[in-house]
Each structure stands twice: as C-alpha cells, then as structure tokens.
C-alpha cells in the first residue's frame, strides 16, 4: 500500500532538476546550519539528544503518513516542520527535519541525493525559520495569551509551507529546469492550498497537546532565538528579495522568446551552462532597482526585528 508514503511530491526535488551549482551551494549552507544545530541541541539536551531527537524524527516521519481526505481523491498531509519548530524550538526542529528528509531521500528516493541539501534547506531550514519568526512574533503581539498558540500555529505553518514551495520553485528556475514565470505562481498556488492542510493539522496537534500535556508546549518556548537564527532569517529574506524580482522580471515567456530570438541564438551556444544563459539577458534596470529595493527593505525589516528582540531581552534581564 504505502510505497510512496510520504508527503506531497512537489516539494521533494529529485536529482536531475537542480544545477550542480545550486545543489552544492545549498548542500554547504545546509551542512553548516545542521552542524550548528547539532551543537546547540547538544548543549541544551546533553545525553538526551540522541534518544529524543531520534524518536521525534521518527514521530514526524510517521506523522507524515497521517492524512485526511479533502475532495476528489486528494488528501491533506502533514509536513511537520511547523509542529517541530513550535514544540522544540528552531535548532532541534532543523535537526529533526534534516533527519526526516535525509532518510526519505536515502531510503525511499523521496527527493534526490545530490538534491538532498536543497530539500533539507527548503523544507527543513526555510520552513523552520519562517515558522519560528511568525509564531514568536504573533505570540509576543498577543502577549502569550492562549489563543496565540493556535492563531500563531495556523499562520506560521501555512506561511512556512508556502515560503518553502516558493524557494523550491526559485531554485528550479535558477537551475534552468523550469520557467520562473510559470513555476513560481503554480507552485505558490498549489501550496497555498496544501499549506491550509498543514496549518489545520498543526493546530489540531497543538490543541491535543495543549489539553493533554501542556508542559510539552513549553519546551520550545524556553529557547529564545539565538543570533544564528536571526541571521538565517535575514539571509533567507534577502535571498527571496534578490531572487524573486529576478525571476519575475521575465516578461511572459512567449513574447520574450519572440523578442530575444535574434541575439539569444548566440548566447545559447555558450560552451557549458552552470547557470543557464537565459537567466541573464532578461534583467533590465527595473529589475535591478527592484533587487536593490528588496535588499534595502529586507535589511531594514531585519534590523528592526533584531533591535526589537534585543530590547525585549534587555528589558527581561532588567525585570529579572
């Protein structure tokens, strides 16, 4: 029965779909972030790290088999990054998701091996970081009231899935294996819906835990984001800011083909494509301006968020 057991197939990139450059860069980023997480969790959990991380990774893996019928033979699934983040805090969640995605790729070919770095990055790291920020922010805005667990859980689970899917589409586009102007809206559109499934299941799980073992919901709370998580959040936001205008600055594929026919034939003869040639000619001044604006905007937002968190921490130190 469950030979392809796990989650929606569109998020697990198989091998062959990413350029070597994208694969390697994301592998390096993933290795670095997982290594930091491994250390951080070791500091927090000590001897309990191996049993707890191992068994919770197994629980998320098994949880991804749970589904509920939606309509027309489709079903909603759990990805679990949001749930792991809310319960365990960002570092442990990165570790757990990396194990889940790694085993899916290695054992069940659910996602490739060379593409595994990217898959862990998208679903594990991006999903976790986005969830963490939104959830923390909403919890703080609501002064930690009970309803913020559920509203925060819902919104952050949804946004985590949607962001991860956009990043996935972006990587494919940069690799030249899909057309950005089609893939990004398509992936985003599908995952806006998938995200609701994730969000609903996440809230269901949080509600269950809230009423049976409320102490478990405090584990993740106890660990404020370290500087590394803020940094990761900033990097991801910057990546989106840079890449999305790049990707969306392509005019509609067709017009563009007609327009560029002439000189593209030359460019197309580039001896070897790591980043396919057709990515570059499309950037006009408008796109460049958008990128610059995006970078500045992200830096500003990131700076503000950082300052707020800093101030909050100082205040809590004083009040202690």
């Amino acid at each position: 029965m469950l030979s392809a057991p796990l989650s929606p197939p569109l998020m697990h990139i198989p091998d062959g779909f990413l350029s070597i450059l994208v694969s390697v860069v994301l592998w390096i980023a993933t290795i670095g972030i997982v290594a930091v997480s491994l250390q951080r969790v070791n500091r927090d959990l000590g001897e309990r790290q191996v049993p707890l991380m191992g068994v919770l990774a197994a629980a998320i893996f098994a949880g991804q088999m749970l589904n509920f019928p939606v309509a027309g033979g489709t079903s909603g699934h759990l990805l679990g990054a949001a749930l792991a983040t809310i319960l365990l805090g960002p570092y442990a969640a990165v570790l757990v998701m990396a194990c889940v995605i790694g085993v899916q790729g290695l054992l069940f070919q659910d996602g490739g091996l060379l593409a595994m770095g990217a898959n862990i990055f998208n679903m594990g790291i991006v999903g976790v970081v986005v969830t963490h920020f939104l959830y923390r922010t909403l919890r703080n805005l609501g002064s930690g009231k009970r309803w913020t667990i559920f509203v925060g859980g819902f919104a952050s689970a949804w946004l985590g899935v949607v962001t991860a899917s956009l990043i996935t589409a972006l990587e494919l586009a940069i690799s030249g294996t899909t057309a950005a102007n089609i893939a990004i809206p398509a992936m985003g559109g599908v995952h806006v819906l998938i995200g609701f499934g994730e969000a609903l299941i996440t809230v269901g799980a949080l509600a269950f835990l809230y009423f049976t073992r409320p102490d478990l919901l405090k584990i993740g709370e106890a660990k404020p984001a370290g500087r590394a998580v803020w940094l990761a959040g900033l990097v991801i936001a910057l990546a989106i800011a840079v890449a999305s205008p790049l990707a969306s600055s392509f005019p509609d594929g067709l017009e563009w083909v007609a327009e560029q026919q002439g000189f593209l034939n030359n460019a197309h003869n580039a001896p070897y494509q790591i980043i396919p040639d057709y990515v570059f000619p499309g950037i006009g001044n408008a796109a460049l301006a958008t990128i610059v604006a995006g970078v500045i905007g992200t830096l500003v937002v990131g700076g503000v968020a950082f300052a707020l968190a800093y101030a909050r921490r100082n205040r809590s130190v004083v009040s202690n």
Partner: peptide, 14 residues
C-alpha cells in the same frame, strides 16, 4: 477532519 488528524499527530508526538 483535519483537526482529528492533527490530534493523531499530536498523540504521536506526545
């Protein structure tokens, strides 16, 4: 239905 499924996921994690 989604909430029921979520309850099961919470159960597994617990």
């Amino acid at each position: 239905r989604a909430q029921t499924t979520g309850g099961m996921a919470g159960n597994l994690l617990m």
